[in-house]
Design a protein around this nucleic acid. Structure first.
Length: 842
RNA sequence: GCGGGCGUGGUGAAAUUGGUAAACACAAGGGACUUAAAAUCCCUCGGCUUUAACAGCCUUGCCGGUUCAAGUCCGGCCGCCCGCACCA
């Protein structure tokens, strides 16, 4: 009994595919195109299991579509700007560029051992000027189109390091390195006008039929279209009224306070003369700028002493608070609180002893009282003057009318979506191509001066923005007046690079961002595959970016990704010893201390619950690793790593190897004609072969890879049971094994290629068309019908397909078990679902 | 906190989308082969009842509802996961 030598086989076929340029593609108009793309990796240094899963999924799709006759574009590149390179630079005293490029080289070598069908000639790396120069031009074109503007916004400021911190770098309100309290600070930054496309980004989710519903729903909620009203509350002793946005103008008579965001201009102004308020606002800044931090903090407020008047009844006044849960970015940064009908407002009112006035009651019940739960349901207006007796929707319409007549408000559609702040005070990113001149103001870098190249000689780890600290880089003459001017020292958010890379892959060597011809041929991406964690931000930015490029004449499409598959995470149990130290899975057996096993979580370096793909590929081969990634869990669900599972996949690889090379039945030569008659078992197996082709093809189309593997295993189980002689078993076995090898090839390409050769084929399996099921063999003559009594299974019937309902019913009623279950009761009715079920109701 | 998702045997899961729950695997137990081990092959494998069965009852996180029929649809709860705009 021999064993499959994966080491030799895998390197052999990898080099043959490469030598023959099997996966290099050009725009061939004679074939249908198919663009399959996996989310490109950040070059962290080594591939992890999440990558292996992602790229295996993509490779199965690419190889399958290729076999089906598509001209398949399947590229790979590197999302190579980002924070980790700067952290590595500080910790290990290595230049970010060197660190990044070395990581890319190491990861490329690792990916190549996986046998992925990439067109490597199209490889791109976003940190190279040849890539980022194009997005500098795009930015300038966006600027011309009015899609870019500059405004002040709040950042996390580390006063010790003199730097802006990412949300990730703020831990419990403190800087992750300095440990000092983080402050909020206003900074002038560049913004992309994503909200110009709010309505379109929302509406165009509908036609994205090959996107998961949950992703479309998340994007819909993120964009957050709401209909409501702007309402003006006059403030006693001030000329300017306070403008608030509300989605519940109908509850205006239930207002009991107004609240401002801590960074609302009015709050800022009051703080100038109110030290206590200043302290409160500073306290609000402690938690950091992330929405999660703001919303989970305990709700607190500060009474400014101002009084706001009801817009339609100046005799009613409400205290004006500054509150930590009001967001400046949403609406106007100010709200009116109606405690009876908003839980957050109710909690706030109870805490500060404010009125709770019910203005919407179920069925208009006057005695309806709010306790500690706000009533947010539909009902009838009460205690609301001219709105009394109206339903919520009618009341909204009516009050908006009154507000508009009184010039105290207006109907409004509002979006939760905010404009995209793209400025980052970091070194390892794409320089923003702008020059600041004292006289001319903001001056774009002239096109002929692009790219603005990142300087190599920077000092990292010093307090401040590295490009600003560079002694000479920022000093340039103004392109407009020639006087001394200063470069923009911020760089782009790294989402900028990943918002258009899919287009660059169409023509990666082009002098422009991409050639129109290549983009028109290849785009949109037919199937995009990546982690669910990108469901909102990356995908939304890319959708916006594509529209912006279209507006600037770069492209003629709006949606970049026609199909989307979001994969789950790869998880593993966690282990720690009695000192609390995390242990690697392989350290568990050798630990001198008692080890406790924690629940399974996403593989992460910090918890050490990782399995290194390289060691798996070295021990079992890429095909085994790939098979395991696809076998048990459906792609969108989390995958539990198990050593036993990988062993099982390895045993199956060897089983296939033996089934071809050491068959237990006589294997006729390739091309032997079909015998005129087949024995029963052989004939049944032959039908299974064709059913499997049909089922596997259908499941591949739907990305049900775990089911694909199960179907193929069922086929091989049946083929292994063929043992007859002279009944055509050998011929069926050969047909079955050839089919099996073809069907498994997208998943285990090296082994399949080798077995294909061993079965006597000259041509590469990679160039062999996908097998087609013989439809005449798929037709079922008989069906098994379940017979139930009152919904409980009492027996089954084998009937000819499409048996008449009456005939089926009579047959069902004759089953002894059915008769017994009916007993002395009378049959009320019988439900017959043809070819499925007979249910006797008694 | 808000938004979205998920929950089925010891484990990963399948169930033609409302119609025979547990396919295919993993683990476990038993057996064959072997001097022995590995590998391989065969059998058993959701729970309970019964001497036994091609017998009955129960079972898809929990509670309730709709239906001839619910893992699937609806309502409420519990648990876990992802995202929350400067991680990528």
């Amino acid at each position: 009994m021999s064993r499959y030598n994966f080491k030799e086989t895998e390197t052999k076929w990898q080099s043959i595919w490469e030598d023959r340029q099997c996966f290099a593609v050009t725009e061939d108009k004679s074939k249908p195109k198919y663009y399959v793309l996996e989310m490109f990796p950040y070059p962290s240094g080594r591939i992890h299991m999440g990558h292996v899963r992602n790229y295996t999924l993509g490779d199965v799709v690419a190889r399958y579509k290729r076999a089906c006759g598509f001209n398949v574009l399947h590229p790979m590149g590197w999302d190579s700007f980002g924070l980790p390179a700067e952290n590595a630079a500080i910790e290990n005293n290595v230049h970010p560029a060197k660190w990044t490029r070395e990581n890319i080289a190491a990861m490329r070598a690792q990916l190549k051992t996986m046998g992925l069908s990439y067109d490597w000639a199209r490889e791109i790396s976003t940190c190279e000027p040849d890539y980022y120069r194009h997005e500098q031009k795009m930015f300038l074109d966006f600027l011309k189109e009015g899609l870019v503007y500059r405004k002040e916004s709040w950042v996390n400021w580390d006063p010790e390091e003199n730097t802006v911190l990412a949300n990730e770098q703020v831990i419990d309100g403190k800087g992750w390195r300095s440990g000092v309290d983080v402050e909020k600070r206003l900074l002038a930054q560049w913004f992309l006008n994503t909200t110009a496309y709010s309505e379109e980004l929302l509406e165009d989710l509908g036609p994205l039929e090959r996107w998961p519903d949950r992703v479309r729903l998340m994007q819909e909620k993120w964009i957050g279209r709401s209909e409501g009203a702007y309402v003006m509350f006059p403030i006693e002793g001030r000329d300017e009224p306070l403008e608030v946005y509300t989605t519940r103008p109908d509850t205006l008579f239930g207002a009991s306070f107004c609240a401002l965001a801590a960074n609302h201009p009015l709050a800022q102004e009051l703080a100038q003369t109110d030290d206590e308020l200043k302290g409160f606002i500073a306290e609000c800044g402690r938690a950091g700028t992330s929405e999660a931090a703001i919303e989970t903090a305990e709700k607190t407020g500060y009474d400014t002493g101002l009084l706001a008047c009801h817009p339609l009844d100046a005799s009613k006044t409400y205290p004006v608070y500054v509150a930590n849960f009001v967001l400046m970015e949403y609406g106007t940064g100010a709200i009116f609180g109606c405690p009876a009908h908003d839980q957050r407002d109710l909690d706030f009112a109870r805490k500060y002893g404010l009125d709770v006035v019910t203005v919407v009651a179920p069925d208009g019940d006057q005695s309806f009282i709010i306790d500690d739960e706000a009533f947010v349901g539909d009902g009838v207006l009460v205690n609301s003057d001219f709105l009394d007796g109206l339903g919520v929707e009618e009341a909204k319409t009516k009050i908006i009318q009154r507000l508009e007549n009184a010039d105290a408000g207006k109907k409004a559609v509002n979006f939760r979506l905010r404009d995209w702040g793209v400025s980052r005070q970091r070194y390892w990113g794409c320089p923003i191509p702008i020059i600041h001149c004292k006289d001319c103001g903001i001056v774009p870098v002239p096109e002929q001066d692009l790219p603005v190249v990142l300087p190599d000689d920077v000092e990292l780890g010093k307090a401040g923005n590295p490009l600003e600290l560079h002694p000479t880089w920022k000093d340039v003459p103004c392109p407009s007046c020639g006087k001394d001017a200063r470069r923009e020292t911020d760089t782009f958010d790294t989402f900028f690079e990943s918002s258009w890379y899919f287009a660059r892959f169409c023509s990666p060597g082009a002098n422009s961002a991409f050639t129109r011809e290549a983009a028109d041929y290849w785009l949109p991406v037919d199937q995009y595959i990546g982690g669910i964690e990108h469901a909102v931000l990356h995908l939304l930015y890319s959708r916006f970016f594509t529209r912006a490029l279209k507006q600037c004449g770069y492209l003629s499409l709006k949606e970049p990704f026609e199909g989307l598959l979001t994969q789950g995470m790869v998880c593993h149990e966690t282990y720690r010893d009695d000192t609390g130290k995390w242990l690697l899975p392989e350290e568990v057996g050798n630990s001198d201390r008692p080890v406790t096993t924690g629940r399974s979580e996403k593989m992460s370096k910090s918890k050490k619950n990782v399995v290194d793909p390289e060691s798996i590929i070295n021990s079992f081969g890429a095909d085994t690793a790939r098979l395991f990634m696809l076998s048990d869990s459906p792609p969108e669900r989390d995958l539990e790593w198990s050593d036993a599972g990988i062993e099982g996949a390895w045993r199956y690889a060897n089983r296939l190897w033996r089934m071809v090379n050491e068959p237990l039945v006589f294997l006729p030569d390739a091309g032997t004609p079909e015998p005129t008659t087949l024995g029963d078992k052989a004939a049944a197996a032959y039908i299974t072969v064709h059913k499997t082709i049909a089922a596997v093809s259908g499941d591949l189309d739907k990305f049900h890879f775990n089911k694909v593997v199960a179907r193929i295993r069922e086929l091989t189980n049946e083929l292994e049971r063929l043992d007859g002689e002279g009944d055509g078993s050998g011929w069926v076995y050969r047909a079955g094994m050839e089919t099996t090898v073809c069907l498994i090839s997208p998943m285990m390409p090296h082994l399949a290629e080798q077995l294909w050769q061993n079965l006597g084929h000259q041509a590469l399996l990679a160039d062999t068309p996908w097998p087609q099921a013989d439809k005449t063999l798929l037709i079922e003559d008989n069906v098994t019908v379940a017979v139930q009594v009152n919904g409980k299974l009492r027996g089954t019937l084998d009937l000819p397909k499409d048996t008449d309902n009456k005939v089926a019913e009579e047959a069902g009623l004759k089953i002894p078990n059915v008769i017994e279950a009916i007993g002395s009761k009378s049959v009320k009715k019988v439900i017959v679902v043809p070819n499925r079920i007979i249910n006797v109701v008694i």
